[in-house]
Amino acid sequence: MKTIRNFRLILPGEIDAEALVSQKPLSFWGGVDMASGDIIDTHHDLFGKNLQGKILCIPYDRGSCSGSGVLIEMVRRGTAPAGILCIEAEPVLALGPLIAEKMYGKGMALRTIAESDYAALQDACRIRFTPDAVLVLERS
């Protein structure tokens, strides 16, 4: 178990879930099917995985501005990840859950960690967001 104490909380949420880890950026628009939560970006190494209830670890998001629109619908439908962990959480990732919280009372946790901590995530299988840390359980 690794403990990362140096994190930034963007959107609240104490969660414990299976981790999906990639070193590649991902766009929710044109990269994720909002109805199922499946990753459909054929160029991505997480292609075919399902995001629902998971903690998605991506370093950054990809270009499209529409990620927020897809994420708000996923939070509304319950297909969104439980949380996202990244190096830089651009506003495209934060806005959807923020509006969903305001409109539907349902959100998604979002935290960022340093690049060096992120690089050490590759063997993570489960992640927990506690009030004062990001706990990483690794594959044995």
Binding site: C65, S66, E73, R76, M103
Partner: peptide, 19 residues
């Protein structure tokens, strides 16, 4: 404004604009 297509913001986005 970007989010004009229904396939980018779906019903949640439409409800937001209508609100």
């Amino acid at each position: 404004i970007d989010a004009a297509a229904y396939t980018t913001i779906w019903d949640a986005g439409r409800e937001f604009i209508e609100f």
